[in-house]
């Protein structure tokens, strides 16, 4: 394959170039990609063939698996929705306003990307446990955060915020002020301009950010396992159930749940691409 690519006889799928090294770099990249990513994932999917459809269906619809998937997905949807609202506000003030500490705020938004998930998990638990810094004030109100589904949501809010902010920032930066000026000239009040001109233009970016945060949230493990109670049927997330199946050496069970999650991830990936194709046609941005 490598030797074919560097022969001067131009293969139809690649345009000829004077720059050397295509065979070496492309060959190495493909081999590395295949060994690390493609072959292992293919073998994982292939492994499900050891199960009959009935067995697969029985695992996929078993009460514990359904409960875990519902929690992972439901908590991720709520967290992504919260992040879409606050992430849009944060992106807006970071692009449009000038205020002291703006750069610091901008930099700290990336903290969830940089802070290891296990660290986030234990510190959020320390804050929201019933004798914790915030938890002690919530406990008398009857709000239980740590070791409940609400804790899962809190952890996923932490994890997902930068996805929304970083998706929206460049889009807000590219917004044409002229349309807002035109709206104002035509007598629109500022709230009217915001809600009827600006926000509709931002909807595709908000949706993209929402789905990115959602996708990350559904698969998240490290930050959640500490703050969730990990009780079967109640506060057990889908990735944790995979880990439990593995420790029981139930490879088929783990594989079945994993392929369901891969399918969910794939659907979300398609959704993002559809949103972006639609946005490009409708608004002319990605």
């Amino acid at each position: 394959m490598t030797t074919l690519a560097i022969t001067p006889m131009a293969r139809p799928w690649r345009q000829p170039s004077v720059i050397p090294g295509f065979g070496l770099t492309f060959g190495f990249a493909m081999v590395y990609l295949s060994l690390i990513v493609l072959i292992p994932i293919a073998l994982l999917i292939l492994r499900t063939t050891q199960l009959s459809w009935q067995e697969y269906w029985a695992i996929a619809t078993s009460e514990r698996v359904v409960a875990a998937l519902r929690l992972s997905f439901g908590a991720a949807v709520i967290a992504a929705a919260v992040n879409t609202v606050f992430g849009t506000i944060i992106a807006w003030i970071l692009v449009r306003y000038e205020f002291p500490g703006k750069r610091l705020l901008d930099a700290i938004v990336d903290l969830p990307f940089a802070l290891p998930t296990a660290v986030a998990g234990i510190t959020l638990t320390a804050i929201f446990a019933k004798n914790g810094w915030v938890g002690q004030f919530l406990e008398p109100l009857g709000i239980k955060v740590a070791y409940s589904a609400l804790g899962v949501v809190i952890a996923l809010i932490f994890i997902g915020l930068p996805f929304v902010v970083r998706t929206l920032q460049p889009v807000i930066l590219e917004l044409e002020r002229e349309t807002e000026e035109a709206a104002a000239t035509l007598g629109a009040s500022r709230p009217q301009t915001i809600f009827r001109i600006v926000l509709p233009t931002l909807v595709p970016a908000m949706l993209t950010g929402f789905v990115l945060a959602l996708a990350r949230g559904v698969g998240e493990y490290g930050s959640v396992v500490f703050i969730a109670g990990n009780l079967p049927y109640r506060t057990e997330i889908a990735p944790l159930l995979i880990v439990i199946r593995l420790t029981e050496f139930d490879y088929n069970g783990a594989t079945a749940i994993a392929t369901i999650m891969l399918a969910i991830a794939f659907v979300m990936f398609l959704t993002i691409n559809l949103i972006q194709a639609w946005a490009r046609r409708r608004f002319g941005y990605v």
Partner: peptide
């Protein structure tokens, strides 16, 4: 692709192999 795969699945694929 690895960014859209849950970390747990990232570990699982090597256990399966």
């Amino acid at each position: 692709l690895p960014f859209s795969v849950s970390p747990v699945i990232a570990g699982l694929i090597y256990v399966i192999m």
